[in-house]
Nucleic acid binder design. Structure first.
Lengths: 241, 241
DNA sequence: CGGAAATTTGAAATCGCTCAATGATAGTGG
DNA sequence: CCACTATCATTGAGCGATTTCAAATTTCCG
């Protein structure tokens, strides 16, 4: 629930309503497809464990990794407005998801309006993350794009497990990094090499060690955004569930 | 209101609540800044008339045009979760905006929960639009990116004024197109030339005529998304305001 | 252990960028 | 109304970052 409570603290009733909306729990193995792009949308997912990718296919087979869903994120939401899913969902690691049928999601807005508002605000955060990724892909060099992805993952994991340190379990193939950064896989390989040569990161098997986060941040020019806590404009909304 | 009612038809009470949330109306001249990136967020805007750009500055002065807000869109929403505005808002044409203070926006979720849900769903649409733009910028060539922008604008204007035809009033400088597509302004110029040479578009002063929309769509590989109308999963939510 | 997928490296091609300069257009103030 | 200026559009030339193609190695999974 970390993502939701980042903003305001949900009441017990609100948390209960959310738990109530969850129908079942599913497990996926690494690289397993969760939802196909273009399929019919009946439910969304709460990521309990693992990494999930949101992937769009365009331009004769080329793929864009548009979003990394981590534990605490709601996956599949963007597609709910359309007849066909805009993004495919893929388990990037072994993953555990809770299923939330759309009709139960809709009821949350009636039963717990403030929770609905929190979901709304969280979706605005997601829009900003997409805009940031767009700005990186649109306006910076290959090494900056890869650095930005590293910074993004580093920061998000830091929130999830503050004791995690600088060693990141890295399940993304260079092909997937390429799909996220808008580069070719081969150039991603060379770019990782350059980051290592510069002493910014090191590879330890399937892990990546962040050696110099300040330099990575400076190189990537990736903005750090501060979330508003308990904003005044939200105080007037009743938290009655 | 077109954007909201695209999904479900709001009741009179819901429309009244939304009107009530609007505080004042403001006019901006072409190229005037509406909101600075990094400023404090106290309100959002409903675009009544004109085009508004959402711009992110990154990477030592380079800018990304992340979103075109057209009449009926809510501008400034993405920033509400943060202490500082993530995007700057710029009037691309002369523009008229209604101001909605954040506390009144928040109250909508309590007073008209179904309207809150509609705002939520509309935000998911916006996420998909961003993902589509990201996929275009990340995965396609210069000519495809410019074609995709043309198709995007053409489709959105077609919804706003179905009688509009193939002649588009084009207020975007090549510099701004470049900021949207992740290209240099000079290359945008050459790319427009190529599109004209191929007979896909023609320029008539400050207007652009779309000569061959099918070929533009095929070239750009830009997906057409169908909005879900009156979805079953929403029927159970009360429309009482 | 076998086979598929992922990584790595080299060489050549190309797309798009930068630099530089010119021409066109529009807004401003006298 | 016109000169002035800033912005925008256009064109050429050369460069450089990234892609593509090809092939060797390594790693991973069953």
């Amino acid at each position: 629930m970390r993502r939701l409570s980042e903003f305001v603290t949900p009441t017990g009733d609100e948390l209960a309503a959310l738990e109530d909306a969850k129908q079942s729990r599913r497990e996926y193995r690494r690289n397993q497809s969760i939802t196909l792009e273009g399929s019919c949308v009946r439910e969304v997912y709460f990521v309990v464990e693992g990494w999930v990718g949101g992937v769009l296919e365009v331009n004769s087979g080329r793929k864009q990794l548009a979003k990394l869903y981590l534990p605490g994120d709601f996956a599949g939401l963007p597609s709910i407005a359309f007849t066909n899913a805009a993004e495919g969902l893929v388990a990037i690691t072994r993953a555990t998801l809770d299923v939330i049928p759309l009709n139960r999601l809709a009821l949350l807005f009636e039963q717990a309006p403030r929770l609905g508002l929190m979901l709304f605000v969280t979706s605005q955060q997601e829009r900003v993350m997409l805009m940031d990724q767009l700005a990186v892909v649109g306006q910076s060099s290959a090494i900056q794009r890869v650095a930005a992805l590293l910074v993004h993952v580093y920061r998000r994991l830091s929130v999830l497990s503050p004791e995690g340190g600088n060693l990141i379990d890295w399940p993304l193939s260079q092909q997937r990094v390429a799909q996220g950064a808008g580069l070719s896989a081969i150039h991603v390989n060379r770019t990782f090499g350059e980051l290592i040569r510069r002493g910014l990161i090191a590879r330890e098997g399937k892990r990546i060690r962040i050696l110099d986060i300040e330099s990575l941040v400076e190189l990537s020019a990736f903005p750090e955004r501060r979330t508003l806590k308990e904003p005044r404009w939200l105080a007037s909304v009743s938290s009655k569930g």
